Amino acid sequence: MWAWIAIYAALGAAGTWLARAYALHRRMIDEPGERRSHSVATPRGGGIAIVAALLIATVAVGVRFPSHAPLAAAFGLGLVLIAGIGWIDDHRPLSPWLRLGVHAAAAALLGVAVGTIHGEAWLGLATFALAIGLTNVWNFMDGINGLAASQAALVALALAWLGGPVWSWLALALAAACLGFLPFNFPRARIFMGDVGSGAIGYAAAGLAALAASGLGSRSALLLWPLAAFMVDAGLTLLSRVRRGERWWTPHTQHAYQAWARRIGHTRVTLAYGAFTLLAVVSLRYVTEVRTGFILGMGAAWYMSGAFFWWLIRQAEPRDRD
């Protein structure tokens, strides 16, 4: 196991170094602006390293476990679609509706594969919804140093524990690749993940959660606990923008993590979000064998606590920013 982790951490680090050199050569630079949370021009596209490492791991899992190769193939093809449209968008901006269409196609591909192979229509529909949702949630939440990668690593660790003897290897590869990327992005960002990484990581987290759910049955709600920090911030911020009649699909800096970062800095916010998610991951150890009703109740309470913290952070902001 440790050799596996070391390999994918090394791939993540080496790939990020190469991606940074490429981004500087191609002038793929995110400039500061009022709709961004950084103040220094920074190259983007470093997430391609995480995607490449995860694709290698997907092939390795498919070869090592031939009976699971069709699911691994569907997962890998969807990952290529998500990362591919993000990579193009990192080079030249695309229509958000075109990107959403590709996201939906990748999510549908994975949903059909999961539902068909496991013979559970509800699982296929849940996979589709989660995949298209988390793909965009991770994109929305990738706005300050280290946040998206650190949250992905923590979520992947939880999925490695709950994913069973096959998919846990893929989750460990995701966690390791994110850890290899992090030194380039936190606490000081020398490269950003870019759409190629943020969307693909969200899709990967959704796919691994769906695959883990097939073995958890009625305890599948546990998989939502480590996602609370991102789900609450992205969901409530989106709802507040829709309620105000804003163009919710356009870039903005209204998320709670962005408002908080303006006051206390990127590093403290990333660590605070990490502590919140780490507590959820650790809590899973003590509730895996309890009744479903207790799991649902505790999960609802955890999301409500996240919503309360979101409200506190937003209340402290002097005024909303577009």
Rank of each mutant, 00 (worst) to 15 (best):
A300M: 15
F75S: 08
F230L: 15
A275Y: 04
I48M: 10
R263C: 08
A158L: 08
A171E: 10
I201A: 08
G215M: 00
A177I: 01
G215L: 00
R247C: 07
H38Y: 07
A57R: 13
L238S: 06
H68K: 01
A21D: 10
V269K: 10
G197L: 11
A10F: 11
F181A: 04
L81K: 08
G84N: 09
E317A: 15
I117K: 00
G15H: 09
G78W: 15
A6H: 03
T267K: 09
R92C: 02
N139W: 13
F294R: 05
S168W: 13
N136A: 05
A307S: 13
T288A: 12
W249E: 05
A300K: 08
N145R: 11
I117M: 07
A10I: 12
L123T: 10
A9D: 00
A173T: 04
Y286W: 15
A171D: 11
A60V: 09
M1K: 07
H25C: 03
I5C: 11
A72K: 10
M231Y: 01
G164I: 07
A212M: 05
L147C: 04
L24D: 01
L54S: 06
W4K: 08
W248P: 07
L312Q: 15
P183E: 06
V155H: 01
F181N: 06
T253C: 12
L134Q: 04
G194S: 06
G265L: 08
G163E: 13
L284E: 03
G299P: 00
T288H: 03
W310C: 00
W138N: 09
A149E: 07
M193F: 11
V282R: 00
F181Q: 01
